[in-house]
Design a protein around this nucleic acid. Structure first.
Length: 420
DNA sequence: TCTGGGGTCCTAGGACCC
DNA sequence: TCTGGGGTCCTAGGACCC
């Protein structure tokens, strides 16, 4: 038996924990630069605010219904996520953190049948009491079915009490019949549309399609999913692996055509890639830089370009990455365009301790202790205290975050004071 | 004025090898 | 007229997830 635990409207939930007076107020959380809606509480969903809604287009609606708007506060969400995962890890030795707000628990050998319902309830109460966040719990014999069970628990909280155990053939059939094809985990827009055209409208019908059709149109990925929905486990519990690609990309607050400005951004993103590489004890052997104008502004001249640069040696030094990245950027930068978004992606990632040495040119050994020292200092102070001179010396860069909530759990001055 | 950021896996086809 | 058989590696594109 697998359990899928999912926090309800996670980002909105995190904001609400520390402002309980907003319990009956619609809440939305915006993306970086306060651009789009990326999270909504149930009340906000009911108002018809779609996922990804551009904030400026919905400003009037927000005001009309007194929607509370928040800039995203990843320090808060990340810390709350750690707390949830830490509580969940007590319930099984085999847990998979699937995303910031979701985890699979393998309950094999942990709970005997007949006690599932009670165990699910205990999980739910523990997390809610420990964090203040509402969660939904779904139990089923495969991961894909536990996703379905979780959906039912979330959709009918009054009826299910936020938990659902899918443990019989009868329940499986009923649940799959209920689930529209586009809501199946692993079936996206394209496949859903195609399935609809083929006359398939729910998960039960999908699960009964000929395997040859699924195989030829949806590859082995679709086939595995189909089996999972039939109750045959194909997805295993997974343990965290080092990332194969690491990307740091941002949109600018305002578009900008200045070479120096763009170069500074690329430098800083390359340095951040280096930090992320060192965190997982990896080096990279190639990197890609891209620059892009504002695609939404079709009235302005458009330009996109990217360049993959193979590195002469594997490295995770911020200095070296910045040098190569700015070198790549210089080749694709064209004056006369207003750039809106740039990014650095590092690829061909290998473990730090296995370095292929180049005959002629190698990573500067002195960078290793230097980067270690920089990481230590920046971790200690929780912000970037030490950086390269080529990074934002005048601190010109800032993200638009007009509605940022306090870092209640990670910053001492932001901790809530409770009156005696 | 203002439209996010970060990942994974699979397949087909081309280029190459013997 | 007729042109083998069996591989690997890489990349772009498509599909999906949160």
């Amino acid at each position: 038996m697998f359990a899928l635990i999912d926090c309800n409207n996670f980002y909105a939930g995190c904001e609400r924990v520390f402002q309980p007076r907003l319990r009956d107020t619609p809440i939305v959380v915006l993306s970086n630069n306060d651009g789009c809606v990326i999270a909504r509480c149930n009340l906000a969903k009911k108002l018809g605010i779609p996922m990804g809604a551009p904030a400026f287009e919905f400003r009037a609606l927000f005001e009309q219904h007194q929607v509370q708007v928040f800039s995203s506060n990843y320090a808060l969400y990340g810390d709350m996520s750690n707390r949830v995962m830490s509580l969940l890890s007590e319930f099984t030795p085999d847990m998979e953190v699937y995303s910031i707000d979701e985890a699979f628990l393998n309950l094999e050998g942990v709970v005997t049948s007949g006690h599932y319902e009670a165990y699910a309830e205990k999980i739910r109460q523990t997390v809610t009491k420990g964090t203040g966040l509402p969660i939904s719990v779904g139990l089923a014999p495969t991961k894909a079915l536990s996703k379905v069970a979780n959906k039912i628990a979330k959709k009918y909280p009054d009826h299910t009490g936020g938990k659902y155990v899918l443990d019989s053939e009868e329940k499986r059939i009923k649940a799959l019949k209920w689930l529209p094809v586009e809501d199946i985990w692993g079936i996206g827009r394209r496949h859903a549309k195609r399935l609809r055209l083929t006359g398939i409208s729910n998960a039960l019908e999908f699960s009964r399609m000929p395997e040859e059709w699924v195989r030829s149109h949806m590859s082995v990925v679709g086939l595995r999913l189909q089996k999972e929905l039939k109750g045959i486990p194909c997805f295993e519990m997974e343990q965290p692996q080092p990332k194969q690609n690491i990307a740091v990309t941002r949109s600018f607050d305002k578009h900008n055509g200045d070479f120096t400005y763009v170069r500074e951004r690329i430098t800083t993103f390359a340095v951040t890639c280096g930090e992320k590489l060192r965190q997982q004890q990896s080096c990279c052997s190639s990197l890609m830089v891209f620059i892009q104008t504002n695609r939404m502004r079709t009235d302005l001249p458009q330009y996109y370009n990217s360049l993959v640069m193979p590195l002469p040696f594997p490295t995770n030094s911020g200095i070296e990455l910045a040098r190569f990245a700015t070198g790549a950027m210089k080749q694709i930068f064209r004056p006369g365009y207003q750039y809106k978004k740039v990014g650095v992606i590092v690829m061909q990632i290998t473990p730090e301790h296995i370095r292929q040495i180049n005959l002629f040119e190698n990573s500067d050994e002195r960078h290793q202790p230097l980067m270690q020292a920089m990481d230590r200092i920046n971790t200690l102070y929780g912000v970037t205290r030490v950086k390269l001179a080529s990074q934002d010396p005048g601190r010109t860069w800032k993200m638009r975050q007009e509605k940022l909530s306090p870092c209640y759990t990670t910053r001492i001055p932001d901790v809530i004071r409770v009156k005696a």
